[in-house]
């Protein structure tokens, strides 16, 4: 139904944040989540729909060691 991807909050300015997705930095609206710099957010269409820990973000992505 919807593509969403977790990334790390780099900086916050009002309702907007810069979020890092493994080197890709995108402006994201964080108006409906509680986050501080360093937290991870799940982002859909430029909007953070949930905040989470790094461990949870990693678990969502299911990192494969062989994908270097």
């Amino acid at each position: 139904m919807c593509v969403a991807y977790p990334g790390k909050t780099l900086s916050i300015e009002g309702r907007m944040a810069k979020v890092d997705f493994n080197g890709n930095v995108i402006d994201v609206n964080i108006g409906v989540v509680d986050v501080k710099v360093g937290d991870y957010v799940l982002v859909h269409a430029g909007c953070a729909i949930e905040a989470m820990s790094k461990e949870k973000a990693d678990s969502i992505l299911e990192i494969f060691e062989d994908m270097i």
């Binding site: 139904m1 919807c2 969403a4 309702r15 609206n29 108006g31 409906v32 859909h44 269409a45 430029g46 909007c47 729909i49």
Partner: peptide
């Protein structure tokens, strides 16, 4: 367009 996942983004757009 979209389902519940996308509606908050439109709500925030209206706020802006």
């Amino acid at each position: 367009v979209g389902f519940e996942t996308t509606v908050p983004a439109y709500a925030l757009l209206l706020e802006e």
